[in-house]
Design a protein around this nucleic acid. Structure first.
Lengths: 113, 113
DNA sequence: ACAATAGGTAGGAGATCTCCTACGTGTCAA
DNA sequence: TTGACACGTAGGAGATCTCCTACCTATTGT
């Protein structure tokens, strides 16, 4: 049992591509159609479609059909999982920073005038 | 300028592999040697070395030579960058949850007895 | 000095990723 | 209905990833 690894698995893989991170960033401002999204990239529209499929498979976006267009919408859950995955590491670097501050305080004591 | 994309770039790619996420998890408890790390995997030690190289290139770990061993240590900075990358999305899902709560409250009003 | 230990590197096989162009499907407007 | 539009899918070329087995170097203990 790898615990949280199961769910987080392909979310990280999906976010590994700069194009897909840019897509999620574009969707922060609200749902958008494929052509709208594709217009922000140099690459062909079908390629953007494929990136959207990867994001969809990871649960990061959902699609809603509206006439002949499809609106892609950002989904929060997988991102919350990334946040949860990150939390032990947050504790880790907080401890590091705390240790650093302590060290600086000792140094400050030495140099008090 | 893609802003935060620059630094975050290969960090996400490095974390895309389950093996490498497992490696960083192992390093949470402190620095470890390569053999120590490799013993937790089915795969060959050279392959683990390669994964460590990817993590090192992303700045996620550093190596310290100690005799004939090399201790790998988790580095906080790249993880903090992931956290910073995540923060606009945190705002996004907080808004979503707030909207959901509001909806539930309205629903509660309808059902008051 | 020599064998054993710790670990990186080379080279390659096979899988996967990323992009393309062509083409198919559903929907709207005239 | 017919053409234009919005989008997905197929198939394939080339790059990259992931793992392996050699093999090499540096360090330690005897």
């Amino acid at each position: 049992m790898t615990g949280s690894e199961h769910v987080t698995a392909d979310v990280f893989a999906a976010l590994a591509s700069p194009v897909r991170r840019e897509l999620t960033a574009l969707l922060l401002s609200g749902p958008r159609s494929v052509n709208d999204l594709a217009s922000h990239f140099e690459m062909s529209r079908p390629s953007v479609s494929e990136h959207l499929r990867v994001l969809r498979d990871a649960g990061l976006v959902s699609e809603e059909r509206s006439g002949r267009r499809r609106l892609y919408r950002l989904e929060a859950e997988p991102l919350m999982e990334v946040s949860r995955w990150l939390s032990p590491y947050e504790r880790f670097w907080r401890d590091r920073l705390a240790g650093l501050r302590e060290l600086l305080n000792e140094d400050g004591d030495d140099h008090e005038h």
